[in-house]
Design a protein around this nucleic acid. Structure first.
Lengths: 333, 333
DNA sequence: AAAAATTAAGTAAGCGCTTAACTAAATTAG
DNA sequence: CTAATTTAGTTAAGCGCTTACTTAATTTTT
């Protein structure tokens, strides 16, 4: 049978109020009764029901995490780092994969609100901000990670995606490449990376390839391969490809190989994220690294301080990407 | 402000009982009032508080999922497949990484019980079954996935790990290998795979390498590499290595490369799981595939039927692994 | 047309907890 | 030694819901 606060109170010959006080360490209780109650709690293996205390306005110690896809290594690594930090604070994560679908985003947001999660960490697309804005207005703790909403005042731990794209282009140009194709999905982060990429090109007066188009479908290996194949068999063949995430880059590598060419000798390939798979693929992928661990930690700390009501002013923490050179890029011969 | 059932009731000129009835579609309500209430709920954007109804014995529509490590591709892919199926039933997942640590396992179990999750899916080690047995006794819905407890009557969706190991050994032996090292971690699934592996060897009268030892630390690339290095530089050098998961296998591949040798020409490598990374590594990894999607779906369906109280008898569903031949294995020359 | 049966809605208790307000006992002050 | 203060613990209301029970209104039966 489930043991409640009443059972403990009866067994310890005190009122439930007293028990509640020793649980929460609030109010005044004598040393003796406190010890007595604690003994009984231990003996009965009493576990306070968090639903009940949540109903009374206490926290649920649960945070909702919305990401595009848990099976994507970047997001599973990010989720893990958030989880680890959350665990230190006694928090659990409800993780929801949205596939960048607005319906799923809103559905999950509603569902988690009903479940009284203490706060939300959003790493999904949210092209439609309506619901999120509303939540912010309602003072629901919401933090954004790995995404950025300029012009929207909301606590954010972002990556400088623009700089990431800029870095990628710069590296490739330094190697002598002039015809660089980009593989990207039409989501915020990728658009920013593309923007940074173009900026770098422009500064060197290099033309951006005119046959660019966004992939449709998920940022996975297959779509990356398909798009790379398209570029490589088109009439304006690139000498390098910048893919906006590692998965896409790996697809591109596969495409090059399938055409009987070599990476990086015939085509240089760059990725983005620096997930585990970047180190595994052959050749090891030159990529733009995101400080995943740090992002996870920072955003969790941020949401916790919001939940505690400490954080008054809104802040945007922008972390910087860095170039990780491996063997998938080489000077243009 | 938060809108409650009272607000709806007032606005619709009915009692909260009536509102509750239309929410849950229980009891008798006239068409007209029903429509009226629904209109008001929509208008006020009323979201029933699940804490409150959970307190009254209703479900929380939340399932606890305990896995060793969310950053491990096998488990993140499994988690995603469970999540997808859960979503169809309106359920959310609280995902906890245990790192195979009994303290974490028990801590999470307790925490999630306090949060009134409707059921548990366990994919962690649980070498210490005490807590789990207790929960089963208390009729808490618990299902096991990707793990097996023979001699323990509990609903399970398992993989035939023994067969997996057997398959791996058989394949390698068919290629002519006789000296096959095994890289494994001292956890249930790996022990079973090892057992199956040895069984296959025995049937062909081939001796198991005497210098075997379990890795310590996580089943990750580095430990795999380290152990492979140890085997390959020892005095009884294997011609093939069977690693009990893809990550370890990739470490082994890196070790071989580091020694200036070639996979599969000098050393054949096999993995286990058939995660995304098996397709990405060079050479593509011959591995034993787990039907991840299917496992996820099946275990979710299982726990749902337990939650609904439909499932009376305990069942163990054992899914079968299969060999996926790629290029990391070759005949012994 | 009155009694019986059916339908529609309301009343109120209670889920397990927190907390403000209160009482009683113990301590200190004057 | 009484009054003021502090300390320890209790009472009871209420968080937002569900549900068994009840009442009132309507329909059906004879």
């Amino acid at each position: 049978m489930k043991v409640t606060i009443y059972d403990v109170a009866r067994e310890a010959n005190v009122s439930i109020a007293t028990v509640s006080k020793v649980i929460n360490n609030t109010g005044r209780i004598g040393e003796k009764t406190k010890r007595k109650v604690e003994e009984v709690m231990k003996r009965l293996d009493y576990q306070p029901n968090m639903m009940a205390s949540a109903l009374m306005g206490k926290q649920t110690k649960t945070i909702g995490l919305l990401i595009p896809d848990l099976a994507n290594p970047f997001f599973s690594e990010l989720a893990r780092s958030i989880e680890d930090r959350a665990h230190e604070f006694g928090y659990n994560l409800v993780i929801c994969s949205t596939d960048y679908l607005p319906e799923k985003e809103n559905k999950y947001l509603n569902l988690l609100k009903r479940k009284n999660v203490d706060g939300f960490i959003l790493a999904s697309g949210f092209e439609n901000l309506e619901k999120v804005e509303e939540m912010v207005k309602e003072k629901v703790p919401v933090a954004i990670v790995a995404r950025d909403f300029p012009m929207f005042s909301i606590n954010t731990v972002a990556l400088d995606d623009f700089m990431g794209g800029y870095l990628a282009a710069s590296h490739l140009m330094k190697l002598g490449h002039q015809k660089i194709a980009v593989i990207a999905r039409d989501v915020w982060s990728n658009r920013e990376r593309l923007r940074g990429f173009k900026q770098a090109l422009e500064e060197k007066n290099i033309e951006f390839m005119s046959n660019f188009e966004y992939i449709d479908g998920p940022s996975h290996v297959e779509p990356g391969k398909k798009m790379a194949l398209k570029y490589l068999t088109g009439d304006d063949v690139p000498t390098a490809i910048f893919a906006c995430n590692d998965l896409l880059a790996i697809g591109a590598i596969q495409a090059v190989k399938e055409l009987g060419k070599s990476v990086p000798n015939d085509v240089s390939i760059m990725g983005f994220d620096n997930t585990l798979i970047a180190t595994i693929v052959e050749p090891p992928l030159t990529t733009i690294a995101q400080p995943i661990q740090n992002m996870g930690k920072e955003v969790l700390d941020l949401i916790i301080s919001m939940i505690k009501g400490e954080k008054k002013e809104v802040m945007r923490l922008t972390l910087l990407p860095s170039l990780v050179e491996r063997n998938s890029t080489a000077p243009l011969v």
